[in-house]
């Protein structure tokens, strides 16, 4: 078969056909993989939540403005049979060693204790700050209540064992948890108030009925 001549028409037709077939093929593959990709993304987002709060069958996701006017935090409340079992708060810190934001997920049980923490994103110094993902560091927060567990490294008078030779990363991590906790406390207070209000409303309604 002879090689096609490089005439204008030939070139246009060839490119048109090739791009047409390519886009058709891509469209087909996109349709095929759409569902798996969505599921994979969902599983990834849920993995961090599952890590920090115990099993749940329903998630309620909303954002909360923190007390000090910085970016809002994402709350993921897990429920079993409509009963709150834990809240996973996505928090971050800009005070790490690397300019990249440290993103963590902090899980709180309904009584305000920290259940567990998980690192979502970090680019700290390998071998030093990256140890924040190791169980030895991040699991020390499990079961602690920030009311009586000061979220500062021991060097600064707190209760947290810092990562060896990575004080700055440890401080950033503690700061991120503190942020999550402050927002959680504020949210909790509101919730309790709302509940009281609701019960009061109910009471007054009942009284009115009488």
């Amino acid at each position: 078969m002879a090689k096609k001549e490089s005439s204008f028409l030939n070139m246009v037709i060839t490119l048109f056909v090739i791009t047409g077939i390519a886009s058709l093929a891509l469209g087909g593959v996109y349709n095929l993989t759409k569902e798996p990709i969505r599921l994979a993304k969902l599983a990834k987002a849920e993995k961090a939540i599952k890590e920090v709060i115990p099993g749940f069958d329903r998630l309620e996701i909303f954002t909360v403005k923190p007390t000090n006017g910085t970016d809002s935090l994402i709350f993921n409340c897990g429920y079993i049979n409509n009963e709150l079992v834990g809240t996973a708060v996505e928090s971050y810190s800009n005070k790490g060693y690397d300019p990249t934001q440290i993103k963590i997920m902090v899980g709180f049980t309904p009584d305000g204790n920290i259940n567990n923490t998980a690192v979502i994103q970090q680019k700290e110094t390998p071998g030093l700050g990256t140890k924040m993902t190791s169980p030895k560091f991040k699991d020390q927060f499990g079961g602690k209540n920030p009311k009586n567990f000061i979220l500062k490294v021991k060097k600064d008078g707190g209760d947290v064992d810092a990562i060896t030779a990575a004080t700055i990363s440890s401080r950033a991590f503690c700061g991120a948890i503190q942020r999550a906790y402050d927002a959680y406390e504020k949210e909790n207070k509101q919730r309790v108030q709302n509940k009281e209000q609701q019960t009061q409303d109910v009471v007054t309604e009942e009284q009115e009925e009488k």
Binding site: M1, A2, K3, K4, E5, S6, S7, N10, M11, T14, L15, I18, T19, A22
Partner: peptide
């Protein structure tokens, strides 16, 4: 053989 010589690189890249 279907690709004209002058547009072979863009064709290859698209593929």
């Amino acid at each position: 053989n279907l690709i004209p010589d002058k547009v072979r690189i863009p064709s290859f890249i698209v593929i």
